[in-house]
């Protein structure tokens, strides 16, 4: 058996073991509640909340997190550059760019 197969098999078995062990425990609070304790700029929750009130947050989740997780930390110095980069790549409108920028760097 090749090394890659061994590694893949080991990762899969470990993951299934952990999953089965933890799944037997009582589920924790919902993702929404989990998100509530985070600062606004920490946006890497992979299951977005449809009820987000902030238009920037909603637009961020509707557009950016479709393709990738958000960076864990985003320096305010580069927020504008990142948004302009993503405006071009994700075909955001000027209004979407403004709202998301306001959300990420209030």
């Amino acid at each position: 058996m090749k090394i890659t197969q061994k590694l893949c098999t080991a990762v899969w078995i470990a993951a299934l073991s952990v999953a089965s062990a933890i799944a037997q425990n009582k589920p924790a609070s919902s993702t929404k509640a989990n998100n509530a304790s985070k600062p606004p700029v920490s946006t890497h929750a992979p299951s977005p909340a449809a009820g987000a009130q902030d238009p920037g947050e909603r637009k961020f989740q509707a557009n950016c997190s479709r393709c990738h997780d958000a960076p864990e930390q985003l320096s305010p110095r580069i927020t504008g550059t990142v948004l302009r980069h993503m405006r071009v790549r994700a075909l955001l409108s000027a209004e979407d760019e403004r709202d998301i920028l306001r959300y990420l760097a209030p």
């Binding site: 999953a19 589920p27 924790a28 919902s30 993702t31 989990n34 890497h44 929750a45 992979p46 299951s47």
Partner: peptide, 8 residues
């Protein structure tokens, strides 16, 4: 992603 069990 199994993030709904105990968070991401």
């Amino acid at each position: 992603r199994l993030s709904q069990w105990r968070g991401p």
